[in-house]
C-alpha cells in the first residue's frame, strides 16, 4: 500500500533529514520525492511504500504528526487512493 506524505511549513535546515529518518526507522520506503517553495512555504511531497512497514498507516500518521509538531511543520499522511479518486477520471 502506498501513501502520500506531505510536509508544509517554514523552510529550515534538516526537515528532509528528520522526516526521512522517521520513515526509514519504520521501514517505510520512499519511492519518489519532490520539494519546492510554494508561496514562501517549504512544501515536500513523498510517495511512500508501506508494504514492508513496521506500522500501519494510522500509526505512521500519528508518529509524523508528533514529529511535525516538534520541528514546526505540518505533516499529512494519506492513502494514495484518495488523490487518484479525486483527480483522475
Amino acid at each position: 500500500m502506498r501513501a502520500i506524505v506531505t510536509v508544509i511549513g517554514k523552510d529550515k535546515a534538516g526537515i528532509i533529514a528528520k522526516v526521512s529518518t522517521a520513515l526509514a526507522e519504520n521501514s517505510v520506503n520512499i519511492e519518489d520525492i519532490s520539494q519546492t517553495i510554494v508561496q514562501g512555504n517549504f512544501t515536500m511531497l513523498m510517495l511512500c511504500d508501506l508494504s514492508g512497514a513496521k506500522l500501519t498507516l494510522k500509526e505512521l500518521k500519528n508518529n509524523l504528526l508528533e514529529l511535525g509538531e516538534k520541528i514546526g511543520v505540518s505533516i499529512h499522511v494519506q492513502h494514495e487512493d484518495i488523490f487518484n479518486a479525486m483527480h483522475k477520471i
Partner: peptide
Amino acid sequence: MLNRNEILETIN
C-alpha cells in the same frame, strides 16, 4: 507521481 497541485488542492 501525482500532480503536486492536485495533492495540495485536496489538503486545502
